[in-house]
Write a protein that binds this DNA or RNA. Sequence first.
DNA 1: TTGAAAGCGCTAACAA
DNA 2: TTGTTAGCGCTTTCAA
Lengths: 343, 343
Amino acid sequence: MARGRTAPRLVDVAARAGVSLATASRALAGREGVSTAVAERVHEVAGELGYVVNAHARTLAGGSASIVGLIVHQIDDPYFSEIAAGVISVAYEKGITVQICHSARDPENELRQIRSLIANNVRAIIVAGSGYLDEGVETAAKRELATFQDNGGRVAVIGRHALRADAVLPDNEEAGGALTEHLLELGHRRIAIASGNVNLTTVVDRLTGIGHALEKAGLSLDALPMVEAEFTRDGGAFAAERILAEHPETTAIIALNDAMAIGVLSTLRTHGVAVPGDISVVGFDDVSVAADLAPSLTTVRLPMTEMGEVAVTMALKEPSSRPRRKHTGHQLMVRDSTGPARD
Amino acid sequence: MARGRTAPRLVDVAARAGVSLATASRALAGREGVSTAVAERVHEVAGELGYVVNAHARTLAGGSASIVGLIVHQIDDPYFSEIAAGVISVAYEKGITVQICHSARDPENELRQIRSLIANNVRAIIVAGSGYLDEGVETAAKRELATFQDNGGRVAVIGRHALRADAVLPDNEEAGGALTEHLLELGHRRIAIASGNVNLTTVVDRLTGIGHALEKAGLSLDALPMVEAEFTRDGGAFAAERILAEHPETTAIIALNDAMAIGVLSTLRTHGVAVPGDISVVGFDDVSVAADLAPSLTTVRLPMTEMGEVAVTMALKEPSSRPRRKHTGHQLMVRDSTGPARD
DNA sequence: TTGAAAGCGCTAACAA
DNA sequence: TTGTTAGCGCTTTCAA
């Protein structure tokens, strides 16, 4: 189905250009051994006909598949959709299509998706979600990915994963430090934390950065109230409720991502708590809406779109002898949700 | 690539099970005409060998790929990422993978993407972006899609398109009416409109609904100031600047989607204009952050995720003799960005 | 530099 | 119910 006798095939291009199948193939793939004149002619004809190579035939014949799989936790989370935008745009330029899979933070699910991608012979798999500290959680997935790599597949991850693969490493620790220093400078000492699942490496790394910055100031992370909840808007709202109820002395809340921060802000507004008058709030990521919240959110920008771009780019390059590791930058975005600590 | 010389093939399974290629194929595809005993044996062997069908070979041999293509304007726009989430989740349940393409609102680009999907023999194509009023804009794409359908491909669109295909039709007109009535009830008469490109059917339909509601109140859409800008947050910000400068008497701004409304709110805040004290603001869509803005945004909810779900579901069903048309619901969400008109 | 022809792994007629 | 075989559209030796 999906195409009758109508979609132009390589033979059609070859015939119209008056060359053989082999020559047409070589010309379109930009390979050696075709005179410039002929190559030009072939491209011209291909354009006229609206010819697009059939990826299945190409892959089957031994060419490499032109698909990359992208695994995200939740595509309608801005963190991931911005990464996806980066992945898709770079892939598009290289004539590669992107298959997106939701893992919905369910390892079972993720495993099935990975298997399907591998069975579809994708060229590369990009794992965009945070890694898990408890490696048991995704052992099976890891094994499949390793085999995939052994057979020539490429893998890139975004975040810290226990996987021997090219990696884009967000400056989570540094970001945590920067944010914490900012709060400390404003005089905050009674800081509470709205945390995501501490089994996520992203969460752990951000906490580590926060901890170090606190120690430099003679404080300790362990002494701070911390509520662990879902790494989402609702998780943030929940955490803020708890913090208000159990630690009313709090003057600043660090939410471990912007989604949570949005939930925190919402809860504070509901309770009539002034931000930053009564409590300052910070997040991580700088999703695009962060600047448009009221008050606008102080956060640390991670270049999500760029992270996606870098990840695909690495995944489509020749593999290096040892995994590549690219650190992202980060940028403290001081906005209106933070101010001097109240007494 | 992605699997070396080691991956077991169907012949391997057939040989080990002592049956022919055809029988093995039939058994694994769950088709008719294989004795239960043999089928069982084949499955057993396939399991032992860890056999996974090569999707490219299967597709090339005549089956259509178990892939649906999803074309969005911009994946990191919440409107589209929520639709995508719906599409992906339903597709996943049916064992189908989703390829996402950005058109970036560029018809050229969209055409290339559509061609690529068709050449890849996808089972269905879902066009999620708004249609264009000026049909010339995407004539080529339409022709390709029509041919695709003639050859058995399935197409579903979200929004009003000049395409003979199953369609999910958002309640744009009704939504525009509901929102306008709400503002009129609050006493607003000096209403300005922050519009997206009026070449988009989504924009036109929303305006139509607004117009009808105005007429019922003895007003006319043509008499209202309207600024046409990009259908994005920045477009909204731009439109609000113009409205403030040229029509300071305005007491309410209708932004034609939430992204624009977010831009409008941001500009108003910058200018120290109170919402809703000085000016009320409304949007369309109810993207997930709308409720968390400050003030929270009055808007009309369209069930984006469900729209995505319905669109794939239709696209994966047998085609009906005449295109299916499913209207979405809509729900006025009155929040804090609207209030009584000032004098 | 170009062409002819042999598959890639699978499905689907057509035979048996 | 089972097997044989001809492709699907492309890449890639091997010859010319």
